[in-house]
Nucleic acid binder design. Structure first.
Lengths: 301, 301
DNA sequence: GGCTACCATAGGGAACCCCTATAGATCATG
DNA sequence: CATGATCTATAGGGGTTCCCTATGGTAGCC
């Protein structure tokens, strides 16, 4: 039983004439004759009554033809779904992003992406790098935005931008009016950090080696927002990525002070499986990043 | 796009592995590989992401596979419907019958048919011979029970039984106590007849040539039941087929008198298109007639 | 670096599908 | 009654498609 045969019997049931049905199907009359005879043989039922001057579906034939029509419609829907899905920029893209980027980059990125791919909504998964790696591997997300270095077999990366780190201190802090701070000055147990597992925590520790790893949770924040509040409340100082310090996040209660050059920074990149079937979606994301208009991000694309 | 290809993508989506999917479909791995590549090419969409150690449907692929499953199910139903329809004795048989036979034969026939073909209900069309002929030709009915002669191109007939005619007179009629009546005695304008178009009317006129064709409707009955009542009420005499005079129809108000031999009679037959696809249904009807147990019908089968 | 697992590609052979030509059957017509 | 018209079935050939085995290519793993 083939879809072609089903098309044949439907046409014959409608035309009630082999020659016309064949013409409608763009085949010769014998082709249709043989195909229908073959199908009848396969099904073990005579589907049509052939009389002189008329062809008419039998009792079974009528039911079979009706069902054949349904089957053909369903098959046609397959084609339609594929047709609609041909546009790689149509349909949800599953994006993973780390906690220290998501809330600050995505509002702008999504805005920019709308211009490039208006029909590609993002399903956003905010998580830590290690979990995003798993999700990429398991095909739970399509792409991820995270900080380099990031190496995973079968996964490609492309740098998006560099983002420098800034020192943040409470109002009235002794550094409040310094024009810049050398990294080694940021030291001791006064520095608030993210909890373990956040890659940005490790990047800060790398940039400021004098910072001691805290022994209690008191100096550990769950998120950059928490850290910011803790700094504002005078608990200590911290180091934050520039993106987290831009509009619309208020810096009224804190002072943002640059490091002395070379300013420490992190490189943010896009990551995706090399076999991902929607390369144009990657391109659209890159274009969206290119369309960002924020001094906090030093674009590499 | 073929049903086979749809089966392939469904299997691949389930197995997530070309080799296993191929095995499940009983084809070689390259066959499945090529078929899926071909389908992807035809649809213009990549349906699967091929990674090392995993195969996973793409966004479109997942939807296509889902729809493919629906299409396959509908196609399978075609097969099931055909399978169920293989029994020619399963499903309604459209039976036409003339007015002068239907009400008298069918109750017994249906009872007898139940034993032969319990799953073949009859859709009964009671009409006059000419109309039944049209319906047979137009495939509005499958078979007909009517009186011979009956010739129609492409239609076969088979005699079922002979049915003799009887004279019916009202109680107190001058013939009431005659043992038999010669046909030529039945004459003049005292004889009640069916309206024009009923074949039985013509058969009576053929058997009793002395009967004058009435000029007014006063002596014309719409049905045998009407005629019987008219006779009972004393309006005249008539000639009726023996089947219409048997149990459970009451003959209390009339006298039934045989003709002198050779009794006039009619030959009742089964008629069907020679291309009718359910010959076993014909056989079942013949068997049902054979199973009749009524002295009114002199079986020929 | 070799091994393993897995999918893609190549090439040959068989099956299938469709074609044209023609036969066969029935009905209408002269 | 022969003839023609109409319609479906059959025959035989040709081209495509499908599927096979064998092999290549690539990534991951020990």
């Amino acid at each position: 039983m083939t879809l072609t045969e089903l098309r044949y019997i439907v046409a014959l049931a409608q035309e009630k004439n082999f020659s016309r049905a064949a013409e409608r199907c763009s085949v010769s009359q014998p082709t249709l004759s043989v195909a229908i005879a073959r199908l009848e043989d396969e099904l073990g039922v005579q589907l049509f009554e052939r009389g002189k001057g008329f062809v008419s579906p039998s009792l079974v034939g009528a039911r079979v033809v009706e069902q054949a029509q349904l089957a053909l419609e369903e098959a046609e829907k397959v084609r339609q779904i594929a047709q609609r899905g041909r546009d790689q920029l149509d349909g949800t893209l599953r994006l993973g992003v780390i906690h220290t980027i998501g809330p600050y980059l995505l509002p702008q990125l999504i805005h920019s992406l709308k211009a490039v791919a208006p029909n590609m909504p993002l399903a956003i998964e905010e998580n830590m790098t290690a979990n995003l790696a798993d999700m990429l591997r398991d095909n739970d997300i399509d792409v991820a935005i995270l900080a380099l270095p990031f190496d995973l077999p079968g996964v490609l990366t492309r740098p998006l931008y560099d983002e420098v780190f800034k020192v943040v201190v409470p109002l009235g802090h002794r550094w409040e009016n310094l024009p810049a701070i050398p990294p080694e000055e940021v030291a001791g147990d006064e520095v608030l950090l993210l909890k373990a597992g956040n890659c940005f925590r490790d990047q800060v520790l790398g940039a400021c080696p004098q910072v001691s790893s805290p022994e209690t949770d008191i100096r550990l924040g769950h998120s950059i927002g928490t850290i910011r509040c803790m700094v504002a409340s005078g608990l200590g100082v911290s180091v934050l990525p520039e993106g987290a310090l831009q509009h619309p996040y208020s810096n009224d209660m804190i002072r943002v002070i640059p490091f002395v050059p070379p300013e420490p920074s992190r490189r943010v990149a896009l990551a995706w499986r090399n076999c991902f079937v929607r390369p144009k979606a990657i391109d659209a994301l890159l274009a969206a990043v290119r369309g960002l208009d924020s001094p906090a991000y030093r674009l590499l694309v």
